[in-house]
Design a protein around this nucleic acid. Sequence first.
DNA 1: TTGAAAGCGCTAACAT
DNA 2: ATGTTAGCGCTTTCAA
Lengths: 328, 328
Amino acid sequence: MTTIKDVAKLANVSTATVSRVLNSNGYVNSATKERVKQAIEQLNYLPNDVARSLFKGRSKMIALFVPDIMNPYFPELARAVEDVTNRYEYTFVLCNTDDDIEKELTYLSALQQKSVDGFIIVSSTISEEHISKINAPIVALDRILSSKLSSVTVNNREGARQAVQFLKSIGCKRIAHICGPEHAGNTKTRLQGYLDEVQDEDWFISSYILPGEFNFEIAKQSTMKLLKDHPEIDGIFAGNDLMGAGALSAAANLGISVPADLSVIGFDGIALGETTTPSLTTMAQPIYDIGSKAAEMLVQQIDDNQISIRSEEFKVVLTERQSTISRR
Amino acid sequence: MTTIKDVAKLANVSTATVSRVLNSNGYVNSATKERVKQAIEQLNYLPNDVARSLFKGRSKMIALFVPDIMNPYFPELARAVEDVTNRYEYTFVLCNTDDDIEKELTYLSALQQKSVDGFIIVSSTISEEHISKINAPIVALDRILSSKLSSVTVNNREGARQAVQFLKSIGCKRIAHICGPEHAGNTKTRLQGYLDEVQDEDWFISSYILPGEFNFEIAKQSTMKLLKDHPEIDGIFAGNDLMGAGALSAAANLGISVPADLSVIGFDGIALGETTTPSLTTMAQPIYDIGSKAAEMLVQQIDDNQISIRSEEFKVVLTERQSTISRR
DNA sequence: TTGAAAGCGCTAACAT
DNA sequence: ATGTTAGCGCTTTCAA
């Protein structure tokens, strides 16, 4: 490894001068600057970021915590965060937490020890108490972790309502809901939106609500059971697209035709929804925008070095595809 | 931030002693060790990893380069690498390169500056020349970058052959192939396997080979065109599952029934293949095993600190699902 | 068994 | 405009 000393020696200046041209601050004669640059070039010198970090107490790294990288929602999100952090010359660290508090805490302290500059966190388990121990900026994503944190979310409840309204508008008379896992914050909000729309309907019974996981196979199995027990169901609002795809697959397996006999709508708007047959109607989140906004907010907080809490709520938008059709 | 000095002061010892208990090396009286531990506990002290890295020249970080994090193959792979690296207490850094050599080189030097301990790289563009400038261990994944590097791959050509053989065995008489992008190393190998099986058939014509991208929509469009131009086709071997899903969707759009009139087989074995209707038969890679093996090899190379080049080739296995059925 | 001190590579006062 | 130096927090000789 060649160091700043080597450069200094070759250019016949002090390390301070080299540092000055490296960071383009302080005065430095243009002739010597040239010499230094030459030396840097010649030695193929790259500054040691670790030494820099040690001095500055900051590492130019940003971490993103996601509960499940295998759920396509999160790679899309990660992609957005990566793009923004790169633009600001941060190194991007992606952490997969399984929504497991132990893993989250392990990551949190490991990264703090590395002087990571900030966190973007999607979590249902991290509490205010844990957060108070972190002294780097945090932006909560997808779910609000604390009123003391900036956050970027979507209108889950309203979006869920719109999904059900849409099913009604195309003529569905018996609408079921597949929930996400109980521990996820989203699950309750989306369920609430569903209930807003159906609980006063005379046809509504609680067995139209399916407990679930954000998982294709489990959703498929429970939908099969649902459709067997309740053949009258003609509309399904799935808590996310992965489960929506599961519902589609369940219907196909039972020989129920979608959308002719059953309409299905999901939530999230991941690319997977376009690959199913029929393709999946969904309440689409502006996933990329959400991720970039969170990253932008975090970078700003890091730079400003002041606590300005901001909350952004994006709106989901109905994206009609083949899994729903008017039956009127 | 509390430092080793604070601990030393509180425990009434030197920083050297604290360091010794921290790293459990060197002699230290069990009584003082106890005192130090108490102090650490009391101050909630966590060692500064940056300072450690500076001293050691190593950072306990491992990076994985993937060309496209939105292709579900890579999250599955990343998941495996993450699990292994975590087990060895490395921090895992995921880099999305878009198969763009500029981005790759930027990442490479940024991470070298951070003293990253090793790289696992999936790339079609990085050359021997670039590699020679890196002085951290590298494991090539999915594609072989250099004979000087350890690598983990699958039997692409043989696997492709098996895919086509399988289509033949169930009675397909006209088999087309959707290729991946030209720049990807895999593309050629899988195409070669296809050719091994079909080029001597009297029905074979070169327009049965479709250029493509590892992308759902593009595969869908070009398959639609193919099936319109060549209605005689009764089997498709897609270069990967994403494109296989595209072919499925194309057939559905044209009212061609799969598997009754057309059989489709993919390559990779990603979870997506189970979510399509019909689900996708595929030559499945042991994705998780591949990722873990690569990570294990890298960790070992880092620890051993010696250049032992090893190559592992995994075998793909035929996974029959609904998109193929015997027509005999 | 423990401590003093040098040094990892860099930056920023402070001096000149 | 440039150099000297202290110090970021840690580990490791070397000496005691």
